[in-house]
């Protein structure tokens, strides 16, 4: 068991991080290169001011017309995305690993808060799942891959939560947790989770079009 743990948290972690960082860079650079080659006019319209106007509105809860129209979804989606980023980055156990391996450390969350954030992520995943299953407009455009993506995101949090509380099977859960985290990292550049990489660009372009040409709001 220890050997497997050493493997997934050692060489496999390297592979996962290389694929995540390398893959993300590749996707973004390839996109920009293709714009340059086939649709260079897009650069003509890009405006920092309107890009930021658009991005800031959409990353602020209730700052857009559609966020205001959907209060429950807005609260859930913001809570989900914030916890999704904050809890793994500032978890004491994760920072300790960075510290042990690279001798770097940063501010950490109290374990109780991290635990609540993990619960929020899991509850949000259930919300998204129920939404996919019950809302007709979402269900109509749902593919198997959408459930898989949701599972990929939920898995590290479920396994991490169970491992932290050590209710059962700690060693195996720990291995599964590390694996799940690695799967998620690798999935980001190569699945629709890539909206993490691309959404600032699509938002910036639409914000610029609306600001520079259409002189109206895209939010």
């Amino acid at each position: 068991m220890n050997d497997i743990y050493q493997f997934v948290s050692g060489p496999l972690a390297w592979v996962a991080f290389i694929l995540f960082i390398g893959g993300s860079l590749y996707r973004v650079i390839a996109m920009i290169a293709e714009v340059k080659k086939k649709e260079p006019f897009i650069f003509t319209y890009m405006s920092l001011k309107y890009s930021l106007r658009s991005i800031l509105h959409w990353i602020t809860p209730f700052a857009t017309y559609n966020w205001r129209r959907k209060p429950v979804l807005t609260v859930v989606t913001f809570a989900f995305h914030i916890c999704l980023f904050v809890s793994p980055i500032f978890l004491l156990a994760h920072v300790t690993l960075w510290d042990e391996s690279w001798n770097i450390r940063w501010w950490t969350l109290p374990d109780g808060s991290a635990d609540i954030m993990t619960l929020i992520v899991m509850a949000s995943c259930v919300f998204f799942l129920v939404r996919r299953l019950t809302q007709r407009e979402v269900q109509f455009v749902t593919f198997v891959s959408d459930y898989i993506i949701l599972g990929i995101v939920a898995a590290p949090f479920i396994t991490g939560f169970l491992a932290y509380h050590q209710w059962f099977g700690y060693p195996i859960l720990m291995i599964l947790h590390v694996l799940a985290g690695e799967v998620m990292l690798v999935a980001i550049p190569f699945t629709r989770l890539s909206h993490m990489l691309f959404s600032p660009f699509t938002r910036a372009y639409m914000g610029s079009e609306f600001g520079v040409i259409r002189k109206s709001k895209d939010y």
Binding site: V35, K37, K38, E39, L73, V138, R192, H195
Partner: peptide
Amino acid sequence: TGARLKTYVSTCIHCGLCS
């Protein structure tokens, strides 16, 4: 078409919020 179409298609998370 180019990066625009590809990016739109791979970024859409099928949330239905446009409906």
